[in-house]
């Protein structure tokens, strides 16, 4: 590395920092500034101090949206990370012919979420949807329901779609990580009489702890930013049962034109996500082993 007093490094940095500063950093600062105002996006802006934050703290819908997204994240951790881990475990034991399997499981990741959402709205459709039809043909008519119209099932139904998409994604990450576990360790354990489950549980999973931490971070921060599935499949309904911070934010800002209030909620959300991210990176930094290298 060169100590350099010339302008050269800055010149290399100008394009990236210009775009990043213009489209991300500056808006972050402005969003923070807006959060202390009452503004509809084009009229007069009125400074209101921390009123918007007080409103957010007392806003039942905003609080509910946090509860919903936390439930959503909890479900997706199981359906994406845990299922992905188990699938990766299965595939790494039984590699022969696993390529086509990995292709099948991974394919949904490639699809635009909007396509996924429209497709799954049909799967859940009350009148001819795949799910109710499948239940009927299995003689489980009593389990049939309006999956996206019942507040008891809507959030779960959307989470399952997320699981369908991302289980393969996490499987892929974990599969790569499993392949890095030194074979000697596994051989040794096997000589000691460990079976595949014990190997998985006691050796392989602990050894890819870093990858799991990263996956959890991705799943959690990604979950907070969820939007596409919710917007297309339920738009927050039924009865607000799937209202998450992002859909609520979009409604507040773009439908009801409360830019100031929406910004305050955005700041709260940002604080939560960044704090979680920092906690996780701190934890992760203690073990600097890099999965990639």
């Amino acid at each position: 590395m060169k100590a350099n007093r010339t302008a050269t490094p800055y010149l290399f940095l100008v394009p990236a920092m210009a775009v990043f500063g213009f489209a991300v950093l500056f808006p972050v600062i402005m969003t923070f500034a807006y959060s202390f105002t009452e503004w509809n996006g084009y009229g007069t802006m009125v400074f209101v101090g921390i009123d918007n934050y007080i409103k957010a703290a007392n806003d039942v819908l905003f609080r509910d949206s946090f509860v919903h997204v936390l439930i959503y994240i909890a479900i997706t951790i199981v359906l994406e990370v845990v299922v992905g881990l188990v699938l990766a475990g299965l595939v790494s034991v039984h590699r022969r012919g696993s390529l086509w399997f990995r292709v099948a499981i991974f394919t949904p990741v490639m699809l635009p979420m909007v396509v996924v959402a429209v497709l799954w709205a049909f799967v859940y459709n009350n009148d001819f949807g795949l799910l109710n039809a499948a239940l009927q043909s299995l003689g489980l008519d009593s389990l049939q329901r309006v999956w996206l119209g019942d507040p008891a099932t809507a959030l779960l139904a959307v989470s399952v779609v997320s699981g369908w998409v991302y289980a393969g994604f996490y499987m892929t990450i974990f599969y790569a990580a499993f392949n890095q576990v030194p074979t000697e360790v596994i051989e040794a354990a096997r000589l000691d009489g460990a079976n595949e489950w014990q190997l998985f549980r006691r050796i392989k999973v602990p050894m890819i702890r870093n990858a799991i931490t990263v996956a959890l971070l991705l799943c959690i921060t990604g979950g907070f930013q969820g939007f596409d599935l919710f917007y297309v499949m339920t738009n927050g309904g039924p009865y607000g049962a799937t209202e998450i911070p992002t859909t609520y934010l979009v409604k507040s800002v773009f439908t009801f034109q409360n830019v100031g209030y929406g910004s305050a909620m955005a700041v709260v959300l940002t604080a939560v996500v960044v704090a979680l991210g920092l906690v996780f990176t701190r934890v992760n930094r203690e073990k600097p082993e890099d999965v990639r290298s």
């Binding site: 590395m1 060169k2 100590a3 350099n4 007093r5 050269t8 490094p9 800055y10 940095l13 990236a16 920092m17 990043f20 489209a23 991300v24 950093l25 500056f26 808006p27 972050v28 600062i29 402005m30 969003t31 500034a33 807006y34 921060t221 907070f224 930013q225 939007f227 911070p245 992002t246 934010l249 800002v253 830019v259 929406g262 910004s263 955005a266 700041v267 959300l269 940002t270 996500v273 960044v274 991210g277 920092l278 990176t281």
Partner: peptide, 29 residues
């Protein structure tokens, strides 16, 4: 390849970009 004044600050800002959710900037954007 270079050490220069403000390097850590600029890298920190970009690293923050890894954590910032879309919600933190899309309204003002």
């Amino acid at each position: 390849r270079y050490r220069f004044r403000g390097r850590n600050l600029l890298m920190g800002l970009l690293a923050l970009g890894l954590l910032l959710p879309l919600q933190s900037y899309f309204i003002a954007q």
